[in-house]
């Protein structure tokens, strides 16, 4: 796990801004540089035969964007839509991908050296999705490894 933090440190920036949100009770964060936008296009078109973690696809100003259910990827029950849900649109290798989350939270500034390696498992979430954790005053911010999250479907697909 330490090498993941190293990879953050290598960028040479002292301070990071994280877009944070809740998935269940967990506060999670994504490097704000990777976030394209946050919207509430929750009315997705289901895609037959897609991996289970794919919630559907939406029209993002003319681009067809895949929306992943972050809860499913992290091994929780599928998201049940309410008015707090949002899609966090992530830029990943030239493709925009939406992550459906339960509730959006603040932007958090984190100092790099205070980010700690993640335990193997936090509240049932597999450690491979976690880059590190950062202690806030009241709670723990779990920093997501977006690349792993986006790759996740290959193992989670229905063709098991």
């Amino acid at each position: 796990m330490t090498n993941k933090i190293d990879s953050i440190k290598e960028t040479g920036l002292e301070e990071f801004e994280f877009t944070t949100f809740y998935v269940g009770d967990l506060l999670m964060g994504v490097d704000i540089q990777q976030v394209q936008e946050i919207n509430r296009q929750l009315d997705t078109t289901e895609v037959p035969h897609a991996p289970e973690c794919v919630r559907g696809i939406v029209n993002l100003r003319g681009e067809v964007v895949t929306v992943l259910d972050l809860r499913v990827i992290l091994g929780l029950d599928a998201t049940e839509i309410n008015d707090k849900n949002r899609n966090v649109i992530i830029k990943a290798d030239g493709e925009n991908i939406g992550l459906m989350i339960d509730r959006i939270a603040d932007v958090v500034y984190a100092r790099l050296r205070e980010i700690e390696p993640a335990p193997a498992n936090i509240s049932g979430v597999d450690g491979r999705f976690i880059k590190g954790v950062y202690k806030l005053d009241s709670e723990l911010l779990v920093i997501l490894d977006i690349d792993e999250v986006i790759k996740a479907d290959k193992r989670e697909g229905p063709e098991m």
Binding site: T45, V47, P48, H49, A50, P51, C53, V54, I57, G62, E63, V64, V65, T66, L68, E95, I97, I150, D153, G157, E159
Partner: peptide
């Protein structure tokens, strides 16, 4: 015709969106 994302590479019944 718009292409589908990488997660749908194995959806052979679909040609796009």
């Amino acid at each position: 015709v718009k292409p589908l994302g990488r997660h749908m590479k194995d959806c052979h019944c679909l040609a796009g969106a």
